[in-house]
Design a protein around this nucleic acid. Structure first.
Lengths: 132, 132
DNA sequence: CTTGACATTCCCCTTGGTGGAAGCCCCATC
DNA sequence: GATGGGGCTTCCACCAAGGGGAATGTCAAG
C-alpha cells in the first residue's frame, strides 16, 4: 500500500502521515524499489490510534506516550488513566477561559447598538482597560 | 518612558511590545539618543486596548482592524459589532469542540479502573477506531 | 572606571501541520 | 521509444503569537 492509499483509507493527508513519521509516531516503513513508502495493515492500525488520540486533543508527544503504553503489555492502566485525566483537566481550563471571553463579549455585543452611528461600548470598554 | 517601564505598567513582556510594533499594531515610537524606544501616555492607552482585545481572543489582525475603527471617528458601530459577533461565534465553535472531546474523555476515564493492571478501555477505544 | 541593569537587533524554537517547487517513478497510450 | 499525467520523493517556507538566548550597546551609581 502506497502513502496515497493509506492516506485515503484512514482519512488523513499523505503529508500528515509523513509528518507523523518525522515526529517519531510511526516507524519508517520499508521502501519499494522506486523509494516509495510501503505500508501494511499494522500501520493502518497505528495511524488510526494516532488519529483518535489527536481527535481527543492529545498533543503529539503524549500520543507517543500512549502508543508506547499501547504496545507495552506490562503497562499499568493507571498510567493511561493519568494521561487521560490530565488531558481532561487541560481541556477544562481551556473551556473555562473561552467561556470567560464569551461572557464578556456577549455583554459588550448586547450593549452595542450596531448601526451606522459611531458610538460603541465595545470600543469604549476595550479602551477603558478593565473588562469583565 | 522606556520599554521596560511601559511593559511593567501594562503587564506585558517588553518582547511582546516589540512584537506588536513589528506586526504594525503600534506605531514605532521615537528613539532616545541611545536608540532606546521612548513611549508616552498615548502608547499606554493603545497597548491597553490591544491587551484587552487579545484577552477577548481577537487575533492580531482583527485587533489591527479594531484599532483602526477605534481611531476612526466616522466609523459605524455596526462594523465593530460584526467583528465581536463573529469572534463570539468562533469561540462558540471552539467550546463545542472541546466539550465533545471532554465528554468522550470523561466516558473513557470512568471506564478505566486505573490501577496496576494492564487492561484499559481507553487504549482499546483509541485502537478501536470509532470513538464518541 | 567599572559594574550591573536595562536596552538593542538577530535568529532559532515552539505546535501541528500545509503549500509549493524541483525532481523521480510508474503506467498507459501513441 | 517517446510522451504525458499522476503519484511519490525531499526540502524549504509559512501560519499564530510570541519565548529564549546571544552578542552588543547604553545608562546610572558607586
Amino acid at each position: 500500500m502506497n502513502i496515497g492509499e493509506i492516506a485515503e483509507r484512514i482519512g488523513l493527508p499523505a503529508k500528515t502521515i509523513r509528518y507523523y513519521e518525522g515526529m517519531g509516531l510511526i516507524d519508517p516503513p520499508r521502501r519499494s524499489g522506486g523509494n516509495y513508502r510501503v505500508y501494511g495493515e499494522r500501520d493502518l492500525e497505528t495511524l488510526r490510534f494516532i488519529q483518535q488520540a489527536r481527535q481527543l486533543g492529545f498533543p503529539i508527544k503524549e500520543v507517543a506516550g500512549l502508543l508506547q503504553l499501547w504496545r507495552d503489555h506490562g503497562r499499568s492502566s493507571a498510567d493511561v488513566h493519568r494521561l487521560a485525566v490530565e488531558r481532561m483537566r487541560q481541556i477544562d481550563l481551556k473551556i473555562a477561559e473561552l467561556q470567560r471571553m464569551r461572557r464578556t463579549l456577549e455583554t459588550l455585543v448586547e450593549r452595542c447598538h450596531g448601526d451606522e452611528r459611531p458610538d460603541c461600548p465595545i470600543l469604549d470598554e476595550l479602551a477603558g482597560g478593565n473588562i469583565g
